[in-house]
Design a protein around this nucleic acid. Structure first.
Length: 905
RNA sequence: GCGCGGUUAGCUCAGUGGUAGAGCGCCUGCUUCACACGCAGGAAGUCGCAGGUUCGAACCCUGCACCGCGCACCA
């Protein structure tokens, strides 16, 4: 392939074709190692900028969420390069334990290679997962290249890389030694679908419609006395080991210490102790609680307080076991629920009535497994837990502002969670993941070996079968990817990282934990700023999901519109802290904008002449000066927006500047000079165009990396010295700076230039409005007469003539219009539209009266303000001055308008 | 129950005290020599409701309503 820098497109093609341009430049950037970070280059003059990618699931494919997230990171990285920083954007993927194992198992089942993972066994299944990972694992990273992501691919990491895995083990061992990791039989969130424990964060509560079953138990010591219990889970009755009431409850207090007969299983209606416990809400249900210590978190605590045993009546897969009794054994928990209710209905007590009193429809919140999609089963099981380290430093760092969250409000959510930390269940009953580095002595399971390395006599030991929660590896990402625990140069130069860009949905899963790990192992925060993106939804506000089919494939969008268009469309509609309603229209807008940019560059190229010639201040027109000032304002606005992470504002400012100010006004106005007789002025105008375009392309580069690079070369710009050797590229062109005072003085620009152009714009829109009022098409050349308030230079007249499509535009200070000539009052004088056959004094009077009405209203409003003594004394002087200006300008305008009306007589 | 967002033009959203804005959509005209993925012009809003502060409120304060999210509770 030819080097694009040595063989630039001689002439820009008529239309922009993103496909070939994008791949060509991406290859070029890679070939020149522009994305590669070198810690050796970091110095005081070249500070480091670093950012680690939130590693996508290794089985994942690119979604719009990734597009949003990674475009932001790319904008940050590319801008940092232009600011002269040494940039490390570190990419990689996450092994995503449950998710990946699910995907692979599903595919193996579909291929009928197994029914259950036990058919294959641990080793064989893991081999299959690795195979899958090698085959499909890189897809999402490839897709990020299509988006233009400037990651340092030479440093791509995977959470199950050998080195990374050793970090995970090392941290486990260390925290175990510190006594922060322990093993215990606890109540955990059990997912019957995936048959593993999950953490509290992986449980999402969802309202469910069910029934509240009221059933009776006979008090053993007082035959004929019944207690009624309200429960949503009658199938767990066989697991009940007690009945609890509030000791202050007058209805039941006297029964404490007695027993109630458990109705199920029918063949073993055991007596249950009635206990008194403060936790019972008198107002809920009947005020009587069945206590099932094995299947409910609260019940478990009550059980512990009263010494009630835990009887597990469920298999790990959610089916009832033998302890549930003959009638329920083997049934799925939901089937068993109905069955249990039926059994209670058939159980007739001595008073002739059934145990079941009623079943009333009831809605309650049920915890669902995030991954498994089924209700969580609270279950007692032996698991590994972590007491979080470095809690206080981690909490303080956000509170005191050393680490900033954008938008700031997430710090409150973070702080709340950090203030209520619960131990983290880190073991998972899966095979895909980091195996827990603990071995049990075969002849003495109480003896354990906890180490990064297996015991030297492995035959005498059995390794813990479980793996660690995926997040137990991800929380080390910012430093485990940089060679920790070695004191690498990368770590020394690039840690802590500068920014983290992620979704607020993983603030607990990932962000908070990384902060704690960072403090615990590097003694420092892992990143300085956290930018939380919004969530991408469809245009109806629904979450993107496969089942709804409302999630467009970004690659299709790139193929259709181009990567830059997708990036720009998404960024322009993604305000800080808000969810984004995705509409393909936005991408279309991005595409249209790229076309506009392309054509504006083509227009410049078609003028020919020297590239980036020196600007001659003496030859600058008012429009030249105006656009230089507008550009300066755009640089200010874009820079400020990016510094505050307001990407959509920056995109919007660029869009507005380039389309409305540069193309719609400046280019059109400049055609007067470009088509004019003076070659020196013409060259000066192309020099101004080069100046503006070269600045604009650089401002655009972080958003539109491909087209900006293509045009940079197509127009042969070389503004200033490249910041890095190895082939010219806009990637390392310096970020535009604001005009210095000396530069403003050199160009001779000041606010009066802006005012003059604003006045010209008013003339043009008045003239165009006159055309509209009399239905004269814009392509018809017609005569205008301007009676100027002050003399106009010839080139200004020519600009106005062009923009009004006037033929001619007569400048005549003593013009005496035929009575009834259509006219408008402009800041540069009275504009007349003398058309044959359109002389109608009455109609013209009416037109002018409309302007009089509006002007009078403006004056009245401003005068009312000034008449209020409170305003004059209390409002800031500049505001009062503004009201005065409105009155005086309005009054002048009014008298001119009246004179015009008078002349109609 | 607690907390956090949101409520501005038909749609999606900017707009943190001084005469209401953009994009899309809509209407009218235009194959004007960069661009019809375009140009010019236009219609369209009691800024969720009610109080309060202020000379002045879309903007600040209080309350309420509705929509969304999170946490807690959930027998």
């Amino acid at each position: 392939m030819s080097d694009p820098t040595t063989s630039p497109t001689p002439e820009l093609a008529k239309t922009y074709e993103p496909g070939s341009v994008e791949s060509r430049w991406y290859e070029h950037w890679l070939a020149h190692e522009f994305f590669t970070a070198d810690p050796a280059r970091v110095s005081e003059k070249r500070p480091a900028y670093s950012i680690v990618i939130p590693p996508p699931n290794v089985t994942g494919v690119l979604t719009l969420g990734h597009v949003l997230n990674n475009t932001i990171q790319d904008i940050l990285a590319r801008r940092a390069r232009m600011l002269g920083k040494e940039v490390l954007w570190l990419p990689g993927t996450d092994h995503a334990g449950i998710a990946t194992q699910n995907v692979v198992e599903k595919s193996l089942r579909e291929e009928r290679l197994m029914k259950h993972r036990d058919d294959l066994g641990r080793e064989a299944l893991l081999a299959k997962v690795w195979e899958w990972k090698e085959k499909y694992g890189g897809i999402i990273l490839q897709q990020l290249r299509a988006l233009g992501a400037s990651c340092d691919w030479t440093r791509t990491r995977f959470t199950m890389d050998e080195e990374y895995s050793r970090c995970v083990s090392r941290v486990f061992v260390d925290l175990h030694q510190k006594g922060l990791i322990y093993r215990g039989k606890r109540m955990v969130n059990w997912c019957p679908a995936t048959q593993t424990a999950v953490s509290d964060e992986e449980v999402v509560s969802t309202p469910q419609n069910g029934f509240l079953y009221y059933f009776r138990l006979e008090v053993v010591e007082e035959p004929g006395t019944y207690l009624t219990v309200a429960s949503t889970r009658p199938e767990t009755i066989p697991g009940d080991t007690g009945i609890a009431v509030n000791p202050t409850d007058p209805r039941y207090a006297h029964l404490i210490g007695k027993h109630a007969r458990r109705p199920l299983p029918l063949e073993d209606q055991a007596p249950l102790p009635i206990v008194g416990d403060e936790a019972i809400d008198l107002a809920f249900g009947t005020g009587v609680l069945k206590v099932t210590p094995a299947h409910d978190r609260v019940d478990n605590e009550i059980g512990l307080r009263h010494g009630l045993p835990a009887v597990d009546v469920l298999h790990p897969n959610g089916k009832m076991n033998a302890l549930a009794g003959r009638d329920l054994d083997g049934l799925d928990r939901f089937t068993a629920r109905k069955k249990a209710a039926e059994l209670l209905e058939t159980l007739i007590y001595a008073d002739g009535a059934p145990a079941l009193v009623k079943a009333e429809p009831y809605q309650n919140n049920v915890g669902f497994s995030d991954r498994g999609g089924v209700p969580i089963e609270p279950r007692l099981s032996e698991q590994w837990f972590l007491k979080y380290p470095s809690q206080e430093a981690s909490r303080a760092v956000v509170l005191d502002g050393a680490m900033r969250f954008y938008p700031e409000r997430w710090s409150k959510t973070y702080d709340h969670w950090m203030g209520n930390l619960q131990d983290w269940c880190i073991s998972r009953q899966l095979w895909w993941g980091h195996r827990i580095p603990v071995w049990y002595r075969k002849d003495d399971p109480a003896r354990i070996h906890v180490d990064v390395n297996p015991p030297t006599d492995p035959d005498n030991w059995t390794q813990d079968p479980d793996v660690l929660d995926t997040w137990f590896s991800s929380w080390l990402w910012p430093f485990a990817t940089m060679g920790w625990p070695e004191k690498t140069e990368t770590l020394a130069k690039f840690y802590p990282t500068t920014d983290l860009v992620t979704g607020p949905d993983i603030i607990f899963f990932w962000v908070a934990r990384m902060i704690m790990a960072g403090f615990e192992y590097l003694g420092e925060l892992p990143f300085r700023n956290v930018y939380f993106t919004g969530i991408i939804r469809d245009k109806q506000g629904r979450k993107m999901s496969k089942s709804l089919g409302n999630s467009p494939n970004p690659l299709d969008l790139i193929a259709k519109y181009g990567a830059d268009a997708l990036r720009f469309g998404v960024m322009r509609s993604a305000p800080l802290g808000q969810d984004i309603l995705f509409d393909e229209k936005n991408v279309e807008l991005g595409r249209n904008f790229c076309t506009k940019l392309w054509n504006a560059a083509r227009f410049r190229q078609m003028q020919g002449g020297a590239i980036e010639a020196e600007i001659v201040p003496a030859l600058l027109t008012s429009d030249d000066k105006w656009i230089l000032l507008r550009l300066d304002a755009a640089v200010r606005e874009v820079t400020a927006s990016l510094e505050e992470y307001r990407f959509s504002d920056a995109a919007q400012a660029l869009y507005r500047f380039f389309w409305t100010e540069y193309c719609d006004w400046y280019l059109e106005a400049s055609k007067a000079v470009l088509n004019g007789p003076d070659p020196a002025r013409k060259q000066n105008t192309t020099a101004v165009m080069d100046y503006v375009l070269a600045h604009t392309l650089r401002l655009f580069h972080p958003f539109l990396p491909f087209i900006s690079e293509e045009l940079w070369h197509g127009l042969r710009y070389q503004t200033d010295m490249p910041l890095r050797q190895g082939g010219d590229t806009i990637m390392f062109a310096p970020w535009p700076k604001l005009l210095l005072e000396e530069e403003r003085a050199y160009f001779g620009v000041d606010a009066s230039d802006e005012q003059y152009v604003v006045a010209k714009q008013a003339v043009v829109s008045s003239g165009r409005a006159l055309r509209r009022d009399f239905n004269i098409a814009p392509n018809v050349r017609t005569r205008f007469v301007l009676k100027p308030a002050a003399p106009l230079p010839d080139h200004e007249v020519e600009t106005l003539r062009l923009l009004l499509n006037a033929e001619p535009l007569a400048i005549d200070g003593s013009y005496l219009p035929p009575k009834g000539t259509p006219s408008a009052l402009t800041p540069l004088g009275e504009l007349y539209f003398p058309l044959e056959g359109l002389i109608d004094p009455a109609a013209e009077r009416a037109r002018l009266e409309k302007d009089v009405t509006k002007t009078s209203a403006d004056i009245t409003q401003a005068e009312a303000k000034l008449a209020n003594p409170a305003i004059v004394s209390k409002a800031p002087p500049e505001v009062v001055e503004e009201f005065r200006r409105r009155v005086s300008e309005g009054t002048t305008k009014l008298s001119k308008l009246r004179a015009m009306i008078a002349s109609l007589e």
